[in-house]
């Protein structure tokens, strides 16, 4: 299990390959990558604040819980903070399991929980100024299915 919180960009291809390579028990690896998108047009940048220390422990707790709920051999979470441009990769998760169902479900679980239970806050910078992104009810509701 590897948890990485950093401001620098990460190499998605290299991370995915390193995670998938050399597996013997796991027949399935699932990866998900989140990208800064410009929904309404005019987004100049996305700023991500976090709570150093708690961020790492919250992500570790979430990944540990995923490993107890599904038959996971391994999990990877990389999440960036600081200023990001449109199109940049914000974060990725990867899961390795014997079968794909566990790998897919655990990846979705990791995504659902790190959206609303890991201490990150997004701020959108446009020509009009900067606004904190409000948490969405759907994201909170998504936790109830687990």
């Amino acid at each position: 299990m590897r948890i990485v919180v950093q401001d620098a960009a990460f190499d998605f291809g290299a991370e995915a390959t390193a995670f998938a390579e050399g597996r013997a028990v796991s027949g399935a690896v699932v990866t998900f990558t989140g990208i800064v998108r410009d929904v309404d047009g005019g987004l100049k940048a996305m700023e991500i604040e976090h709570y150093p220390g708690m961020t790492e422990s919250a992500l570790t707790d979430i990944a540990t819980e995923a490993k107890t709920r599904w038959s996971l051999e391994d999990a990877l979470v990389i999440h960036r903070h600081g200023q990001l441009e449109v199109g940049e990769m914000i974060m990725m998760v990867a899961t390795a399991a014997r079968h794909r169902k566990d790998a897919f479900e655990a990846a979705e679980y990791l995504m659902d929980y790190l959206k609303s239970r890991a201490p990150f806050w997004k701020r959108e910078v446009t020509a009009d100024g900067a606004d904190w992104v409000a948490a969405r009810d759907e994201d909170e509701d998504a936790l109830t299915r687990w």
């Binding site: 989140g34 709570y51 708690m54 999440h79 959206k115 201490p119 990150f120 806050w121 904190w132 992104v133």
Partner: peptide
Amino acid sequence: VAFFPPMTGG
């Protein structure tokens, strides 16, 4: 003790 708005990661 830390106070903050609902989190918006991912």
